[in-house]
Design a protein around this nucleic acid. Structure first.
Lengths: 100, 100
DNA sequence: TAATTAAGTTTATATTATAAACCAAATTAT
DNA sequence: ATAATTTGGTTTATAATATAAACTTAATTA
């Protein structure tokens, strides 16, 4: 068994949850992600910035009525990175033995 | 989709690799684990200590001929934790969509 | 108009990961 | 014989990371 390195950007609980939501949602608001993940706003803000800085997601700052609304979308690069991560971590999880 | 928390002890690349090796090997020597994981001895030593302190593995310090030899084995607690981790991280990986 | 809520961002702190430095004993080279 | 190197690790110093607390700005409600 060879262990492929795990993308450190994705190997973090909150960032992985964000990517997981976005990969099957085409877009999601900050507040929605916050509710789904139970993250604090500060933590979520930081992690979204990191994903954005890496080009894994696009962040659009808009308004919903009069209130600010941050919308996130996964990029192609982000999708590829996520798929590569899933592929890599399978090595660690003993997919065969554990019937993942 | 609910995101189960990921056991922080297992959600680390090297510790997860160690557990992955041990879950399908019933025992493994320090030097073997080191080779399989490409870890530095210092890092591996620290991470093995943490897994041991948590009761996830047992560590036996013995000799092989005249040289020291550290043998690791996974515990029942460790197996359970590993299985729970595999179960938990599935939520994040979009198993269905990604055909894991 | 004062207090509260909403939607975030910034920053300070605590935790964690990791490698460098170290140690003891065995082996090999001179 | 003894000096140098290798083996099999451990300890510890540092860098990186995660996270929540504190803060900001604007809108809403009392």
């Amino acid at each position: 068994m060879i262990f492929k390195p795990l993308d450190p950007l994705l190997h973090n609980e909150l960032r992985l949850a964000v990517m997981s939501l976005l990969i099957s949602a085409d877009e999601a608001e900050f507040t929605y992600i916050r509710k789904q993940t139970n993250a604090t706003a500060g933590n979520l803000s930081v992690q979204i910035d990191k994903l954005s800085a890496a080009g894994y997601i696009d962040v659009e700052k808009t308004f919903k009525g009069k209130r600010p609304c941050t919308i996130c979308r996964i990029t192609t690069k982000g999708q590829q990175a996520f798929e590569a991560y899933v592929d890599a971590i399978k090595n660690y999880l003993n997919v065969d033995k554990n019937g993942l």
